[in-house]
Computed example of a mutant assay.
Amino acid sequence: MKLKQWFATWSRKIHRWIGLYFAVIVVLYLVESLTLPAIYGEGLPTVDGTPPTNAVTSTEPLLSQQQAIQRLLEQQPQGIHALEDINEITYLPKEDLYRLANSDRFFEWYIDSHTGELLKHGFKIAPYLEEQTLLGWWSPWAHAILEVPGLLLMIVLAVSGVYMFILPFLPKTEPDSSPWVLPK
């Protein structure tokens, strides 16, 4: 078998199996991206991670972090069941807001730093999909097993696809008619 024929045969086989692998990955990603946010988002609205514009202009003194947490808990916003649900608190001086978050569950709340009024809250869907799809919600190593070989397989898929595309345009070679080759 000539090298060209061998490469053409294996390109088709490799291309088919890697394409099937990526089809399964795409279906898994689509199913997860449609179902998991509804389950893990606890019905919260989705947010994009940008703070709201603070329309409240107050001359009240700035709340401390503890007071901001207390004001937030008094309002009983969705997604907070206990004080332990808040694992980040940040003061945003430009917006004059406090950003409280649960980075493990991708929840965040923005409150006015003077009045303690809840201005915006929700589930950060974009980082959730980046980190938790492809079985990342189940186990980080399972996510890595599916994600890491993807780049290498994409390169192989591209090379085999390009070869299969240009194969009809390659010059045809005559079969070897040497007396040392046995006829088939």
Rank of each mutant, 00 (worst) to 15 (best):
A68R: 00
L153G: 07
T46S: 12
V156P: 05
L134E: 09
G136C: 02
M154H: 03
D104E: 14
P45C: 12
G136T: 02
I166A: 02
L92Y: 06
I145S: 10
L100Q: 04
S103W: 09
L167T: 09
L135H: 06
Q5N: 14
A101N: 03
K120Q: 15
V156D: 04
E147V: 15
Y21P: 10
L92P: 07
K124W: 15
P171Y: 01
E60F: 04
T59L: 13
S58E: 04
E130Y: 09
T35P: 07
A126Y: 07
Q70N: 11
S160E: 01
I18M: 03
V181M: 12
T90I: 08
K172R: 14
E42Q: 15
P77C: 13
L20M: 10
L146W: 02
P179F: 00
G19W: 03
E74N: 14
G116L: 07
N54L: 05
K184I: 12
V31Q: 05
I145G: 13
I155N: 09
V27T: 08
P61A: 14
Q75A: 13
L118N: 01
L135I: 10
I14H: 07
S58H: 02
D48T: 11
R16D: 08
T53G: 08
K124T: 10
A142I: 15
V24H: 01
I18Q: 01
E108R: 07
E147A: 11
L170I: 02
I80P: 00
T9Y: 10
Y163Q: 03
F123N: 06
I25R: 02
S139T: 13
E84N: 13
R16G: 13
P171L: 00
M1P: 06
E117R: 09
G41E: 09
E174C: 02
A144I: 14
E131F: 08
A82I: 08
S139I: 10
T115N: 03
S178P: 05
E131R: 14
Q70Y: 07
G43T: 13
P52Y: 11
A144M: 13
Q132T: 12
T57E: 15
K94E: 15
W10S: 05
A144T: 15
K120I: 04
K94F: 06
L28I: 13
F22I: 02
V47W: 04
L30R: 03
L152E: 05
V156Q: 01
I145W: 11
T9W: 07
I86C: 01
L3T: 12
L28W: 02
T90Y: 10
M1E: 14
